[in-house]
Design a protein around this nucleic acid. Structure first.
Length: 576
RNA sequence: GCGGCUGUAGUCCAGUGGCAGGACACAGGCCCCCCAAGCCUGUAACCCGGGUUCGAAUCCCGGCAGCCGCACCA
């Protein structure tokens, strides 16, 4: 018996949403192409995401390279942490984690492990045979930049690094102030060992990520009130350990009780929920699960995954929302030698007393000659009480120097400090677009029985439907075809994808459009010839209203952009 | 990566050493006054590579892909 995954993928493949890549050559696991309808729907999903994150939230979008140079992933930790050292037995061909064959080996380079493996005389644990060279298996796809093999490049395993490496310019773009956010939508690549589960685990996939840079000591959100009383199903780590299910919680309570670490994270959990629901996911099949301590990356302060319930795969991760703290920015600062910090002005300048220790070098110089500057430095580091003594003793390089209290002058003064430089923390919602696409298809898939026949429907939201409108003459007669084609032309001119179809019976055509999620079909009939009206049929209720042709553009516009629903149409126009 | 099962038109299935078939879908036409059901015609497939054989979709070996389990999944 076909499960829901099979039914959804059947429609997806047959009607042009998703196709396995390179099919004529037998395909390759972990790669999928989007067909015409899938591409249309994905574009609409991405543009809806931009609508929320770029327009409504005001975060600008950038586009950075898919290929990164070695330094980037050296700094980010992907080179080291995304790699397993592997050694293969020359005799039996078995592969082992090389560092696990050695005692107490951690965080050292591949050549060093190789040396240790060879010098320690470790043999194959399975057959006792001789081991080959230690090689790395890294989940990043690597390539070479330019001719020769000296300059290594990698396909990015996440879009985030392109944002971090542009931090200085982005900070300047935003006027040097926190908080600010930048988004990126694009491909990322992971050379998975054995991808399965269709588009759930791909080697090449699309991410939509926001990197929100915030002050480490201010994780309040100015618009928190917008969602504070929203109820969201949450599954905190302690509840998971006890084997409990998600519970609906007011966002405000979750943050106040410390279940969610802070307001910014809470706001973005709610915003993510809002996005996914408005995109058309089933609210009953959606929850936010907190990472367990052991699955959380070591740098993350808190992390929540938006998970959707699918029939075959159970709960799958669609979005990860993490507080990455200052890990990435600090790592790139260290590696690049740049000071990746933000100057944050205090609300009020702070008065600060500083103690200036001045040493009279005129006297010290002749006394200690070439050692005098070292002595002076040592004196400056002494505690205040020592400096007030008549004779000051200080030790430098194992020698004790004694100077008169008179050569040292301690000056206290008050200065105004306007602000401080801080390394921002990063809050990162990271969306897996392909997984959202699949889940939308599954959550939208619906079957009912009409007169003994299965009616397959994709209940996609009008704004995401790849073909949002179709025009169908009731019969393929010239007098009905002419006005139908005129309407198609009008709708296309106003900027909406519109399909025309005159094949076979009207009922069959409705079914074809139901299956690809077209929410509305316009039909011309004989009454059209009498009074210039057409019918609009609603996919989900199969009901119709009759609308004057001259209002079609307005109606289509409102229906597709979801400013009107079909209920409103039934109030406004003639129900049939 | 390891083990099990599977691979035939777009889809689902039959064919198990001797001309590759059906249903649905699709295309063209007829028909059709609102929900896949009528008629005619047409397009369309043996996963890839090697071997055995006079002859392989069928038997054997290898690869690839899919499903299930294990491993992997910062």
């Amino acid at each position: 018996m076909a499960d829901l995954y099979e039914k959804v993928m059947d429609v997806a493949k047959r009607r042009g949403f998703l196709w396995p890549s390179f099919e004529i050559y037998g395909g390759s696991a972990g790669f999928y192409d989007y067909g015409p309808l899938g591409t249309g729907m994905k574009r609409r999903l991405e543009s809806f995401w931009r609508r929320i994150y770029c327009i409504e939230e005001g975060f600008h979008e950038i586009e950075t390279t898919l290929i990164g140079i070695e330094s980037v992933f050296d700094a980010s930790g992907h080179l080291k942490c995304f790699t397993d050292p592997i050694v293969v037995c020359k005799k039996c061909g078995e592969a082992f984690r090389a560092d696990h064959l050695l005692d107490g080996v951690r965080d050292i380079s591949i050549p060093e492990i190789d040396k240790l493996v060879k010098s320690s005389g470790v043999v194959c644990p399975a057959c006792g045979g001789e081991l080959g060279d230690v090689e790395e298996y890294n989940l990043m796809f690597s390539t070479h930049i330019g001719p020769g093999s000296k300059r290594r490049g990698y396909l990015r395993p996440e879009t985030a690094q392109g944002i971090f490496t542009n931090f200085e310019r982005l900070l300047r773009f935003y006027g040097g102030k926190l908080p600010f956010g930048i988004v990126q939508i694009g491909k990322a690549f992971r050379n998975e060992i054995s991808p399965r589960q269709g588009v759930i685990r791909l080697r090449e996939f699309t991410q939509a990520e926001l990197e929100l840079f915030v002050h480490p000591n201010d994780k309040k959100h100015p618009n928190f009130d917008r969602f504070s009383s929203k109820r969201i199903p949450l599954l905190p780590a302690p509840n998971q350990i006890k084997g409990e299910d998600a519970v609906e919680m007011k966002l405000k309570d979750a943050v106040e009780n410390g279940i969610i670490a802070h307001e910014v994270l809470g706001y973005h959990i709610a915003l993510c929920w809002d996005f996914l629901i408005r995109a058309g996911l089933d609210p009953k099949k959606l929850r936010f699960r907190q990472h367990l301590p052991e699955e959380m990356a070591h740098y993350a302060a808190d992390c929540w995954d938006a998970e959707a319930l699918t029939e075959r795969f159970g709960w799958i991760e669609l979005v990860g929302i993490a507080d990455r703290t200052d890990y990435d920015i600090k790592a790139h600062a260290l590696k690049s030698g740049k000071e990746l910090k933000v100057f944050c002005e205090y609300k009020k300048p702070k008065k600060k007393t500083i103690v200036d220790v001045r040493v009279d070098m005129g006297k010290l110089g002749p006394l200690f000659k070439e050692e005098s500057s070292k002595v002076a430095d040592a004196i400056k580091k002494l505690p205040k009480e020592e400096l007030e003594k008549d004779k000051i003793k200080v030790e430098v390089d194992g020698k004790t120097f004694e100077v008169d209290g008179g050569v040292v002058e301690v000056v206290q003064r008050e200065i105004e400090v306007k602000g401080e430089k801080v390394t921002p923390h990063v809050v990162e919602p990271s969306f897996g677009i392909d997984r959202i696409m699949y889940t939308l298809l599954e959550h939208s898939y619906y079957e009912d029985f009409v007169e003994g026949e299965i009616r397959k429907v994709l209940k996609l939201r009008p704004k995401l439907a790849p073909i949002p409108i179709a025009v169908l003459p009731l019969m393929s007669k010239p007098e009905l075809i002419d006005p139908a084609k005129k309407i198609v032309h009008e709708i296309r001119k106003s900027g909406f994808m519109c399909e025309y179809d005159e094949r076979g019976f009207i009922g069959k055509r409705y079914r074809r459009f139901d299956e690809i999620g077209t929410p509305y079909c316009i039909t011309t009939d004989y009454q059209t010839l009498e009074d210039d009206t057409v019918t609009i049929r609603d996919r989900d209720t199969m009901r119709q209203v009759r609308v004057p042709m001259k209002e079609i553009n307005k109606v289509v516009h409102n229906l597709i952009l979801e400013t009107w629903n079909f209920e409103k149409m039934r109030e406004r126009y003639i129900n049939i």
